[in-house]
Design a protein around this nucleic acid. Structure first.
Length: 225
DNA sequence: GCGACAG
DNA sequence: ATCTTGTCGC
C-alpha cells in the first residue's frame, strides 16, 4: 500500500505547464467534446460527449468505469480523473475541434489544471469549466469579468443568472477565443451544454450501476436524455 | 501559524 | 464528488 508521490506530481505539473499554448486558437469549430466524471463508491464513471457546433446537438457519447485509487487533492485533480477521461475520449473515437473539461485550466496553483493536462496530453484545444475558484482573483476590464493568475488573464467569467462559471484557458486557445465562444456554449442550463450533458449521463450511469444496491428495483422515476 | 482549497 | 429532507424559484 502506498499513495502516489504528491511532490513528484507537482513537479510534473510545473514541467508540463511549459508546453501549454495560449497563443493559438482553432480556426473553425464544428464539433465539441465534453468530459466529466461521477462516482459510485470508489468507482469513477467517465463520460465523453460529442456535440455538433454551433447547434450543440448531441451526436454520440462513450462511457468507461474503473476503480479510482488516487485521492482528491486540490491542485492534483488531474492525477485522479484524467486517466479515465482519456479512456472515455479514446473510446469515443472522434476528432473534435475543441474539448471542454470539468475543472480548471491554467487558473491553477502551477498553471496546469486538469483542462490543460488533458489538452496537452491529447494535443487538442481545451477549455476548463469550473464553478469555484481554485487560484487567482477576479478582475473587471471594461465591464468584463476575468480570473487573473500570475498577471495573466486565465479565465473568462460567464454569468449564468446569479451563478458564476469560470471558463479557463486549457491548451491551444486564447483568452479572446474563450471569451468569444463561451456565450455560444450555453443552451439553457447553468453549465455549458457539453459539460452539462456529460454530467447528466455519467450521473445516470452511476446511479444505475450494478454496484449501487437497489438499482434493479428502486427505479420508479423515468429519466430522459 | 492561519486560511484556502477544481471535482 | 457524494451523503440527504424539505424547500425556494422558474
Amino acid at each position: 500500500m502506498h499513495s502516489f508521490n504528491q511532490l513528484k506530481a507537482q513537479e510534473l505539473q510545473v514541467r508540463l505547464s511549459e508546453l501549454v499554448n495560449t497563443e493559438y486558437s482553432p480556426s473553425s469549430v464544428r464539433s465539441v467534446v465534453g468530459l466529466d466524471l461521477s462516482y459510485v463508491g470508489g468507482v469513477g464513471v467517465s463520460v465523453a460527449t460529442l456535440h455538433r457546433y454551433p447547434d450543440l446537438s448531441l451526436v454520440s457519447y462513450s462511457a468507461v468505469a474503473d476503480h479510482v485509487e488516487i485521492p482528491y487533492i486540490p491542485g492534483l485533480l488531474a492525477f485522479r480523473e484524467a486517466p479515465l477521461m482519456f479512456a472515455a475520449y479514446e473510446l469515443l473515437n472522434a476528432d473534435p475541434d475543441l474539448i471542454l473539461v470539468n475543472g480548471h485550466g491554467i487558473t491553477h496553483p502551477r498553471s496546469f489544471g486538469i483542462a490543460s493536462h488533458v489538452g496537452v496530453a491529447l494535443d487538442k484545444p481545451s477549455i476548463g469549466v469550473a464553478r469555484k475558484v481554485l487560484a487567482g482573483r477576479e478582475v473587471v476590464i471594461r465591464g468584463v469579468r476575468y480570473l487573473e493568475t500570475n498577471r495573466v488573464l486565465g479565465a473568462y467569467v460567464a454569468l449564468q443568472g446569479s451563478t458564476k462559471i469560470y471558463m479557463s484557458l486549457g491548451h491551444k486557445v486564447t483568452i479572446e477565443f474563450v471569451s468569444r465562444i463561451t456565450p455560444t456554449l450555453f443552451k439553457g442550463h447553468e453549465l455549458p451544454e457539453p459539460i452539462h450533458t456529460a454530467d447528466r449521463i455519467s450521473r445516470r450511469l452511476a446511479r444505475s450501476s450494478p454496484l449501487k444496491s437497489g438499482s434493479s428495483s428502486s427505479s420508479k422515476t423515468s429519466r430522459h436524455l
